Amino acid sequence: MVAQPTVDLRDVRPEDHEHLRPIQNAAIDEPSPQLLRAAVDGLGIGLVAVIDRPVGYVFALVGETAAYVPEIAVDPAHQRRGIGTALLDGVAERTAKAGASALRVTVRVDDERAQAFYRTHGFREHERLPEYYGTEPAAGMVLSRPL
């Protein structure tokens, strides 16, 4: 068995933008450059996973009781190695310290892979959002887990 490289998590920095934008484009079906810019500019809580270079990131906004993760992305060449889990665990810890009692994400209703990932991490359906995604409207599902 091949040992997995060590993943370091750190706060996102403005200079990460040039490394994270290609990850966003490769990993997210409908990437939002504005959302990534807001994350690297310090809006909310942003973490970067680093293995010699940035290989993934997560961004969360903390509200009065819940934190919302609008984006979590891992370079496709590094997926299925625990990086997404490390990012999710890191942002859960940080948002709980910031006062959130729940963590929420939105996934496409037809994205079984994303749903399976979040369900293995304790998320359950919170609500459905008809016509939530994109130019060809697709339903979204908000998943939530207590912190």
Results as ranks from 00 to 15, higher is better:
D111R: 07
A86T: 05
A96K: 04
R108G: 12
A100W: 01
G99T: 09
V107K: 03
A98K: 07
G84I: 05
D111P: 05
G84H: 03
E112C: 09
A86E: 12
A98D: 13
L87C: 07
R113Y: 11
R94D: 06
S101G: 15
D110C: 13
I83Y: 06
G99D: 11
T106F: 07
R104K: 14
D89K: 08
D111M: 07
R94I: 01
D110V: 12
L103S: 01
G99I: 07
L88P: 00
G90H: 10
G84F: 04
A86V: 06
D110W: 05
T85C: 11
A98R: 07
E93A: 15
V105R: 01
D110A: 14
E112Y: 10
A98E: 10
L103R: 00
K97Y: 07
L88Q: 00
D111Q: 10
V105M: 03
A96N: 07
V109F: 10
A102S: 15
V109W: 10
L87N: 03
D89A: 13
I83R: 06
R113S: 13
E112S: 15
D89Q: 11
L103V: 04
G84C: 06
V107Y: 00
A102Y: 00
S101C: 13
D110Q: 13
I83L: 11
T106I: 15
A92T: 12
T85A: 15
V107E: 03
R108M: 12
A100E: 04
G99E: 09
V107I: 14
K97G: 14
E93V: 12
V91M: 02
I83T: 11
A92G: 13
R104Q: 13
G84L: 05
L87W: 05
D111H: 14
V109T: 12
V91G: 02
V105S: 00
A102W: 00
D111G: 07
R104A: 00
L87M: 11
V91D: 02
V105I: 14
E93H: 12
E93K: 13
S101F: 02
V91S: 01
R94W: 00
V105F: 00
T85E: 15
L103P: 02
G99F: 07
G90P: 09
E112H: 14
A86K: 11
K97A: 15
A102E: 03
L88E: 01
V107T: 10
R94E: 08
R108C: 07
A96S: 13
